[in-house]
Design a protein around this nucleic acid. Sequence first.
RNA 1: GGGCGGAUAGCUCAGCCCGGUGAGAGCGCCUGCCUUACAAGCAGGAGGCCGACGGUUCAAUUCCGUCUCCGCCCACCA
Length: 914
Amino acid sequence: MSKTRSHGVFGKGVQPGCGKRQREGHGGLALHYNFRVSETLPTRYDFASAEARWYTFWEKRGFFRPRPGKGRFVIMMPPPNITGILHMGHVLNNTIQDVLVRWHRMKGEETLWQPGIDHAGIATMNKVEQEIAKEGKTRFDVGRDEFIKRTWAWKEKYGGTIIEQLRRLGCSADWENLVFTMDPGYTRAVLTAFVELFNSGLIYRGKRLINWCPRCKTALSDDEVEREDKASHLWYIRYPFAEGEGFLTVATTRPETYLGDTAVAVNPKDARFSGLIGKRLRLPLVDWERRDTEGRAVSPEVPIIAHSAVDPDFGTGAVKVTPAHDPADYEIARDENLPLVQVIDQSGIMTENAGPFAGLTREEARERVVAELEKAGFLEKVEGYTVPLGTCYRCGTAIEPLLSEQWFVRMKELAGPATEAVRSGRVKIIPEYGQKIFFNWMDNIRDWCISRQIWWGHRVPIYYCDGCGEIFASVDKPEKCPKCNSVNIRQDEDVLDTWASSWLWPFGTLGWPDRAERLLRYYPGDVLVTGWEILFLWVARMMMAGARFMGEMPFHTVYLHGIVRDERGRKMEKSLGNSPDPLDLFREYSVDGVRMGILFITPEGRDVLFSLKSCEIGRNFANKLWNAARLVLSNAGGEFRGLPQELRLEDKWILSRLDAAILRTNELLEAYELNGALKTLYDFLWAEFCDWYLEAIKPRLQSGDRGGIDVALFVLDVYLRLLHPFMPFITEELWQALPNRNGESVMIAPWPEPLGKVDAGAEKEFDALREMVSGVREIRGTFRVPKGAKLRLFFRNSPEAMGLALENRTILEFLAGIEGVSESAEPPAGSALIPSKSFEAYVTLSGIIDTNKEKTRLEKEIAELSIQVERMRARLSDPDFLQKAPPHLVQEQKIRFSEMEAKLERLREQAKRL
RNA sequence: GGGCGGAUAGCUCAGCCCGGUGAGAGCGCCUGCCUUACAAGCAGGAGGCCGACGGUUCAAUUCCGUCUCCGCCCACCA
């Protein structure tokens, strides 16, 4: 009988090296053993089928719904944008949440993972605008009502994509209670919050210089502006004195705005200019009329003023002041009562104030202005310079500071309780240093511009009465003015910043402002899992909203993970083409493989360098697990007979190791060290269960003793439960095949508690046995011992180790190819020494051991060891050490020293003998 | 300018909080294996003055300070 070898359990396509092999004809350490392989599990794991099957099963059984239990665990899913398409960042973020949620659910807690979708004002508007653009129109051509209608239609058509994708990822969220931020209930929450803040005086309207995106045609908050350094220039422009000869040179990065200058400022302490303050300069070229924002004419002659904000060391020490287009200049203008001349409009086009440059874009104007200035001799020089350019976080367009009327939230008052919660430890940030970053921002918080000049979103619930001029806020659309009863009222045109709705997420999703049952039951939640990039945009504000509206922080732990980068450390971006489609990865490596892979390589709190390699780690691990289970199940005969009465050494060892893995996994999960927990599980399965335990029980299987299989089944049951949160699908598929499973799904099976089976003695003995096996294997390798050749093992002055070897000789025989264990008063001739601290053992095989090679091997070992021994000898003869180090440590060192010395002695003796 | 993180094997990272003297993993590399659970695998191996300099200590990869390099966040240097 021959079998086609498959390459791993996932093998779907053609694999290299895939050919038929005869069973006979190859040697090996264990060639006379045969193991029954039944078809209990298919050779290949059909993950695609398992993923679909089990997800449906879980959902049909309602496992994603919270079920009453002991304790409660609530996570609010950061709502993806309706425009969102699953990317690796989502995969990481949601896998972490799913691990936590599945873990707590298994612990028997009432677990809610609240999912939702964000209407994503600007991002969604951009999508719909792109559609409209295909018809050659803008949103202004279409009109507000029609635009909103089309946006809803777009949402119906594409808005659910990412939810389906998150389900593919295996997310066990409470999908039946999915919340959209523009649902009527949630909308009411948003408006209620606004009205409350307005009535409390925490929301105000003001005319300010704000960040304006000329492409999106809306204001942005400071936090929505991204800064990037851009190579540009510093232009030195000469401003002639209005009277007399000469000029003053100013340096600027934005020459096109000089048309809106209303002053030139110098530092009052700057002696170079002390005599010039109060004098007037004439703006080059400007011979047309400019008007300020109040409509008053502004002279092209501007004063030289003194202001402390000016850095004398920058440029020429004199700075042009363009209050309408620069935040710093705006401050100066406010202090000095300067007029504001706007030269760029809301679309980024030069205004009438720009005279002949009117109608040009900002970029065109820059070129033309520079050219004209140069031609007229006003351009002194140009230097290369890197400018920090503000760009729109949604479309990347350069931000234009513009003067406009907007709604703001006073943040200082709101920030207090949130800062205090972190300071007092009521809210913990993971990693811990996140606190410092949090404080740094909170302590310098500035007011939040929450109005947006777009149409998709929650309309500002402010009404203006045309009758009496009253301005008031109302959740419901009012019929008339509450003050004068006039029906001539109109609503504010702006909508709210998307973050001004999502900051209510932890309670808005639960029915607030009503005292809904869900709200009382699930607020506050427990953990918030998100990336650093929205710590301020979202997390901090949720904390403020929680304090303000609920009187309590919305979670006790903030878990921050890094962003997913490519293997070269670059951000994943569409334009770079370095962002793999997770769905492709799922098809190639399985969902579990991708989940496991990314968690495996994610350092706590720092950015992840993602590559296909990590998916391979996950896939290979799943393969390993599948095959281990296959070996066990195929020998179980469909039954589990309970743990054997008499446990053998390897049984005690693996149970002890399993117990250690349980303890460690629990410990690490409690500390939110998912990566560490997963590594613990990885190592246990691969390096202990597969490499040693399953190998060690093979001889027993041969002799018809199924004790090892029952232990293995026991281990697998516990292990699959431990691993389930990380790799939900394969663990379910395998757990369902266990004869000893207890329950209908691993997903709701009890989370493993420590077994009380830690057995230090068994571990020590098995370690010694492993040392013998590895020692023999090393000798086999060094001396090129043929595969089938049997070696003899001799012990000298090591009764304990010899007893151990005799008791476990079948294991030694199988794993190390040892035939015969005996005692020897003297080292046998032609033998090789197994270097060990705890025993003295030799391996013999006539004619095989090459004396020279053995000598080299021993000498190398001696050289390394003697350095250590000498170092330790010095330490142990240091009176300071003996006196000051803790006694138990000194004792420990002494024991270790004598062991190492004994080992060294043995090595030296043997080397001398040769 | 202010705040923060990182520097450990060729690469990506554990370990460091709480110092204990033999520094681990995965991938890559070398050697030998298709040993019927798994070649996406097995066995063995090479490879590291733990960024630099000081300090504390009986003892420092680990704690403290300074510096260098890389990265991130915040901030009105035009």
